[in-house]
Design a protein around this nucleic acid. Structure first.
Length: 519
RNA sequence: GGCCCCAUCGUCUAGCCUGGUCUAGGACACCGCCCUUUCACGGCGGCGACACGGGUUCAAAUCCCGUUGGGGCUGCCA
């Protein structure tokens, strides 16, 4: 179901301010990850939607690090995560210093760990205005209370014991440690969500939640609201796991006197089994996909489709520029979607076919080198041609190994199933001999001429072309799949082709071991 | 437990707001056939869904209520 029932957008996805009357001519959105080791696929989706939304509408995209939990944050985590963003091509207009780059933007600092004083100041303001209070209850007391409630099957709520402490009582506490709680007001609160519609909750459903820890650090809810408020974020686009939290946040925005931003809570990305995409699962890290030979534009295309559908019907293939053109918020969906590897494969193949062949060649060479081959020994023309004949077949960059390894190594084994089909049949020997005889006299070793020779042979023998192509492919490549046979033969070269045919013939004849079979 | 969100083919989804044109459209996957070469690409075809139950209505995938299933929040985590 799409989010179109909330008629809160005007032309081309520009969302107008409805409640405050403030015209938000400046669209500002943000991604606020906590750096936990790598860029998670779910975070990448949220970042992508924010980024696309900002870029499409001439807005600003902010990167803010939620690293309040200093112990859990490591500088290398930040680097790893940003590497994910960079690979995807998601760049930010404002954000913390990164690498050699200094901080960007006028609303910094952009790391929560550097903003502690700001949170404390705002918490103090709420305290002064009577919108928050100090709570001296100990953890033990609260836990006991909670347990009692559980047993009596009451909803576990805070007793509000410290809510109405008089100044004298507070003073009497001396330097006992305390947390600061938000004094949840009476009434109800509406969250007007661009994706989920209007969500109304009774305030009394919420406890007087803690906004500051005893050590002075803010609780998440306080930090996000202060940051979003002070950074003048106009659109809070995040995962729908925050939908309930949004009510708390709206109350806090109002208490702090900040304009309430627009919200859009997006469904999360599920794994292939329909479960929450675990951090430990392969693919949770965006860079896993890079390592597996996927293109960033394909991943982006795919992830965009997980929660957005184009207005143009029956279209799924989008370059980044096309996405920027077509990405309107009213087509954002509200139900969670599973990650489907097969569909990504398909899209990735489509994007590979869209690539400039020379660019693809540069991507493919390192993969071959990684596999232990020396592609750079070949001429550039040769490499370009090799890339070209593989381009229309491979699904991932890494597939180049399966499709082209035989160019760089001797054939030391044949695909067993293909052997059965081609070489353990009546007439296999004859066919291989005929191929050798037909190809040996060829002067001009070009795909066209090779093809002509195959056709002439098949014709003369009253056989189908395939009867010769299959055994030849197996001899040349050791496999039943690969690039077009005549093109591959041209690139392999006449000597190698004839030699491999001879090897195959020996193999069929006397079961001779293949060259370089050391095992 | 309480509150909130979600629910169309195996998967991603269109349609839902503004009920009839829906014997529910597309894509991935799968299965056939074609492209006198496999795989791939492309083309054609097949398989395959409105979670369930009530209501409202002349008419419901579409509106309302309930049930079930999934998810979230309910922390001195973010």
């Amino acid at each position: 179901m799409l989010a179109k029932h909330c008629a809160c957008y005007s032309m081309e996805g520009i969302i107008l301010k409805r409640f405050t009357g403030v015209s938000m001519d400046q669209i500002r959105c943000r991604i606020a990850p906590s750096p936990s080791g790598f860029l998670h696929i779910g975070t990448a989706k949220i970042a992508l939607f924010n980024w696309l939304f900002a870029r499409k509408n001439g807005g600003t995209f902010v990167l803010r690090l939620e690293d309040t939990d200093a112990e859990r944050t490591d500088e290398s985590f930040v680097q790893a995560m940003c590497e994910g963003f960079q690979w995807l091509g998601i760049d930010w207009d404002e954000g913390p210093p990164f690498g050699d780059e200094p901080q960007k933007g006028d609303y910094g600092p952009y790391r929560q760990s550097d903003r502690k004083a700001i949170y404390q100041q705002e918490t103090q303001r709420l305290l002064d205005e009577g919108k928050a209070y100090k709570c001296f209850c100990t953890r033990e007391e609260l836990e006991a209370e909670r347990e009692r409630a559980q047993q009596e099957k009451r909803p576990p709520r805070y007793s509000q014991k410290c809510r109405n402490l008089s100044p004298e009582e507070v003073a009497a506490m001396g330097d006992r440690s305390y947390v600061v709680r938000f004094k949840v007001p009476d009434g109800s609160t509406e969250v007007n969500d661009l994706v989920q519609g209007t969500v109304r909750c009774e305030n009394k459903e919420f406890d007087d939640f803690v906004i500051q820890k005893p050590n002075g650090d803010p609780i998440f809810h306080m930090a996000v609201v202060v940051d979003d408020g002070q950074m003048q974020i106009s659109h809070v686009i995040r995962g729908d796991d925050h939908l309930t939290n949004a009510t708390r946040h709206v109350m806090l925005f109002q208490a702090l006197g900040y304009p309430v931003p627009e919200f859009a809570h997006l469904p999360m990305v599920l794994d292939e089994k329909g479960k929450k995409y675990s951090k430990r699962l392969h693919g949770a890290n965006v860079l896993d996909w890079r390592n597996d030979g996927y293109l960033p534009e394909a991943l982006i295309n795919y992830v965009a489709l997980l929660g957005w559908t184009p207005e143009e019907p029956n279209r799924e293939l989008f370059t980044i520029d096309e996405l920027l053109e077509a990405f309107v918020i009213k087509r954002w969906g509200k139900s969670a979607a599973r990650f489907d590897r097969k569909k990504l494969d398909w899209l990735n193949g489509r994007h590979i076919r869209l690539m400039d062949t020379r660019v693809l060649m540069e991507r493919v060479i390192p993969v071959l080198e990684e596999a232990g081959f020396n592609p750079r020994e070949r001429s550039e023309d040769w490499l370009l041609r090799m890339t070209e004949i593989c381009q229309e077949k491979i699904g991932t960059i890494n597939n180049i190994i399966e499709y082209a390894d035989f160019f760089f190594k001797e054939i030391n084994s044949y695909e067993p199933k293909a052997v059965k089909k081609q070489y353990q049949k009546e007439g296999a020997e004859t066919k291989l001999q005929q191929l050798i005889d037909a190809l040996t006299p060829l002067e001009d070793w070009s795909a066209d001429m090779i093809k002509a020779a195959f056709e002439a042979l098949a014709e003369a023998q009253g056989e189908k072309l395939g009867a010769y192509i299959h055994p030849a492919r197996l001899a040349f490549t050791g496999k039943s799949v690969g690039p077009g046979l005549f093109e591959l033969a041209e690139l392999l070269g006449k000597d190698a082709c004839l030699e491999r045919l001879q090897n195959a013939l020996d193999y069929v004849n006397v079961g001779a071991p293949l060259p370089e079979v050391q095992e």
